[in-house]
Simulated scan of single mutants.
Amino acid sequence: MEKPLYPEINRELLSKQGELAPENLEAWRNFSKTVFKAGALSEETKQLIAIAVAHVTQCPYCIRAHTKQAMRKGVSKAEIMEAIWVASEMRAGAAYAHASIAMDEMENFEH
């Protein structure tokens, strides 16, 4: 049987990670809790942002975790999909915008 690209997260694996750097893990958990608390943005909006960013960074663990959290907060499937489309447009738009760098290099090469 072929080994999966991304291992399944389980308590044993998380425990081992925590044992290797407990202070860092605690700091990260506190940071995460603080970031996702309601503030100027609602918890729902923050989860939608996280879903969009997770799709741009292509983190499968983040996609699963933040999709689940968003749905627990009452975010609809349609809202989640719309956030994913925004992320898709931004990623594609960034690729197109960066074409100016290649264009500049091609122009410089010719001179």
Rank of each mutant, 00 (worst) to 15 (best):
P4Q: 06
T67P: 02
Q17H: 06
S42N: 02
I101Y: 09
M90S: 09
S88Q: 12
I49E: 01
H66Y: 07
E89I: 10
I63G: 07
N24G: 13
F31A: 10
K16R: 15
A97P: 02
K46W: 01
L13C: 00
A27L: 15
E23T: 13
V53L: 11
K3Q: 15
E12H: 11
Y96T: 13
A70K: 00
A50P: 05
E105A: 14
E19M: 08
R29G: 01
K77P: 00
L14V: 08
H98C: 05
E105R: 14
G39E: 10
C59S: 11
A78P: 03
E26M: 11
S88C: 09
H111T: 09
A94W: 12
S32E: 08
Y6D: 07
E26Y: 01
E19C: 01
K77G: 04
R91S: 13
R72N: 12
M106D: 03
I63Q: 12
S32Y: 07
H111E: 14
L5G: 03
K33F: 00
Y61W: 06
G39W: 03
V86H: 14
M103V: 04
I63M: 11
L20E: 11
Y6T: 14
A70I: 00
A99F: 11
L20A: 14
A38N: 12
A78Y: 00
T57P: 00
Q17P: 00
M90Q: 08
D104F: 07
Q47A: 14
Q58W: 05
R91D: 07
N30R: 13
H66I: 02
M1Y: 09
E43N: 03
C62K: 05
H98D: 06
V56T: 13
A94K: 01
W28T: 01
E44F: 00
R29S: 09
M90Y: 09
W85I: 00
I101M: 07
A87D: 02
L48V: 04
I51N: 01
P7D: 13
H66W: 00
G39K: 12
S42I: 04
T45I: 11
A92K: 08
A40S: 11
A78R: 08
E23N: 12
Q58G: 00
P7I: 05
S32L: 07
A83E: 02
R11E: 15
F31D: 02
A83L: 03
E43F: 01
A78T: 07
Y96M: 15
D104C: 03
D104K: 15
A97V: 10
A40R: 14
A40N: 14
A94E: 05
K73R: 07
E89T: 12
R72K: 14
K33P: 00
A102D: 10
V86N: 10
Q69K: 15
W85G: 07
H66L: 04
S32T: 09
P60L: 07
E43T: 06
A40H: 13
T57E: 06
L20C: 05
